[in-house]
Amino acid sequence: VTLFVALYDYEAITEDDLSFHKGEKFQILNSSEGDWWEARSLTTGETGYIPSNYVAPVD
Rank of each mutant, 00 (worst) to 15 (best):
L3M: 10
S41N: 12
F26T: 00
S19E: 04
L29I: 09
E46D: 09
Q27N: 08
L3Q: 08
I13G: 11
T2C: 08
A56F: 09
D17L: 15
W36P: 06
H21E: 08
E33H: 14
L7V: 07
H21F: 13
D35I: 11
E38N: 09
G45T: 04
E33M: 13
Q27D: 08
Y10H: 06
S32V: 10
R40Q: 11
R40H: 08
R40N: 05
S41L: 08
S19T: 09
I28T: 02
Q27L: 12
A6K: 00
Q27M: 15
F4S: 03
T47Y: 09
E46Y: 11
T43E: 15
E11R: 09
S31N: 13
N53D: 11
T2E: 12
P57Q: 08
Y8C: 08
L3E: 08
V5D: 02
L18D: 00
L42Q: 08
K22H: 06
P51V: 02
E38C: 08
Y10Q: 02
L7M: 09
T14I: 06
L42N: 05
Y49D: 02
Y49L: 15
E24R: 01
E38A: 07
Y54N: 04
L3D: 05
W37Q: 02
L18T: 02
P57Y: 07
V1S: 14
S52Q: 07
S52M: 10
K22S: 07
S41M: 06
L3I: 15
K25N: 07
F26H: 00
T47C: 09
L7S: 02
E38S: 07
A6F: 01
F26W: 01
F4P: 00
K25Q: 13
D17Q: 14
S32R: 09
D35A: 10
Y54W: 07
I28S: 01
N53G: 13
S41T: 04
K25R: 13
K25T: 13
A56G: 10
E11L: 12
R40M: 13
G23N: 06
E24T: 07
D59P: 14
N53H: 12
E15K: 15
G48N: 02
F20M: 09
F26Y: 01
L42S: 05
I13Y: 09
E38W: 13
T43F: 09
K22V: 11
V58G: 05
E38V: 13
D16I: 14
Y54M: 11
P57W: 06
D17I: 12
G45I: 01
S32Q: 12
G48E: 00
E38T: 10
A39T: 01
V5N: 02
Y54F: 11
E33Y: 12
E46T: 08
P51C: 06
K22W: 05
W37D: 01
T2D: 10
Q27H: 13
F26Q: 00
E33T: 12
K25M: 15
A56Q: 11
V58P: 04
D59E: 13
F26I: 04
S19V: 03
Y8P: 00
Y54A: 13
K22E: 07
L3R: 05
Y8S: 07
L7C: 06
V5W: 06
T44L: 03
T47Q: 11
T43P: 02
W36M: 14
P51Y: 07
L3F: 10
K22I: 09
S32I: 12
D16E: 12
Y8D: 07
E11V: 15
G34W: 10
D9I: 02
Y10T: 01
L29K: 06
Y10K: 03
G45A: 04
N53Q: 10
D9G: 05
H21C: 08
V58N: 06
V55C: 05
Y54E: 01
S52I: 06
P57G: 05
V55E: 00
F4D: 00
Q27S: 08
L42I: 10
D16Q: 15
L29D: 05
S41G: 03
L18S: 02
Y8R: 10
T43G: 07
Y8K: 09
D17M: 14
W37G: 01
G23Y: 05
F20E: 00
G45P: 01
D9H: 06
T14K: 15
E15Y: 10
V58Y: 15
V5M: 09
P57R: 09
F20S: 01
A6R: 00
L42D: 05
A56R: 11
P51F: 06
P57L: 08
V55F: 10
G48Y: 02
T2V: 13
E11S: 11
L29H: 05
V1C: 09
S52C: 07
K22P: 03
W37H: 04
A12W: 02
Q27P: 00
D17N: 14
H21I: 10
V1H: 12
G23Q: 03
P57D: 04
N53Y: 10
L29T: 07
V55R: 00
I50T: 00
K25I: 15
W36H: 08
D35Q: 11
Q27W: 13
G45H: 07
I28V: 10
D9A: 06
E46H: 11
V55L: 15
Q27R: 08
F4H: 06
S19G: 06
L7P: 00
E24Q: 07
T43M: 11
F26N: 00
E15C: 06
T47H: 10
N53T: 12
V55S: 01
S19D: 04
T47D: 04
D16V: 12
F26C: 01
N53I: 11
S31C: 10
I28G: 01
I50W: 01
K22C: 06
G45W: 07
I28D: 00
D17Y: 15
A39Y: 02
K25A: 07
W37M: 06
G45S: 05
S52N: 06
F26A: 00
L42K: 04
E15F: 10
Y8F: 10
S32W: 11
G34C: 07
F4C: 07
A12R: 07
Y10S: 02
Q27I: 14
V1D: 13
H21M: 14
F4V: 14
I28A: 03
V1Y: 15
H21K: 15
S41P: 01
E46L: 12
V55T: 03
V55W: 01
S52V: 10
A56K: 11
S19R: 04
T47M: 09
N53L: 10
D35G: 12
W36Q: 07
N53C: 08
D9Y: 04
A12L: 01
T14H: 15
T44Q: 03
D59I: 11
E33F: 11
P51W: 08
D35P: 11
N30D: 11
Y54C: 06
E15G: 14
D35E: 14
S52R: 11
S32P: 11
I13R: 15
T14E: 12
G23T: 02
L7R: 04
I50Y: 01
L7K: 06
E46A: 15
L18G: 00
L3G: 03
I50K: 00
W37R: 02
Y54S: 11
D17H: 15
G45F: 08
I50N: 00
A6C: 02
P51G: 04
D16N: 15
L3T: 09
E15V: 13
T44F: 02
T2W: 11
A12K: 08
R40V: 14
Q27Y: 15
E11D: 10
E15M: 13
L29G: 04
L7D: 01
G34A: 15
A56C: 07
W37A: 03
G34T: 14
A12C: 04
V58S: 08
G34L: 12
S31A: 15
T47N: 05
P51Q: 06
K25W: 13
K25E: 08
A39F: 03
S32L: 12
L18E: 00
L29P: 04
Q27T: 11
G23W: 05
E46R: 12
S41W: 02
T2Q: 13
P57C: 05
D16F: 15
F20H: 01
A12E: 02
T47F: 07
E46K: 15
S31G: 10
L42C: 08
Y8G: 06
E38F: 15
S19W: 03
G34P: 15
E11I: 15
A6P: 00
T14W: 12
P51T: 02
R40K: 11
K25L: 14
E24P: 00
N30G: 10
Q27A: 10
I28L: 06
A6Q: 00
Q27E: 14
V58R: 03
N53K: 15
L29A: 05
T44C: 03
N30E: 08
R40Y: 11
D35F: 14
T47A: 07
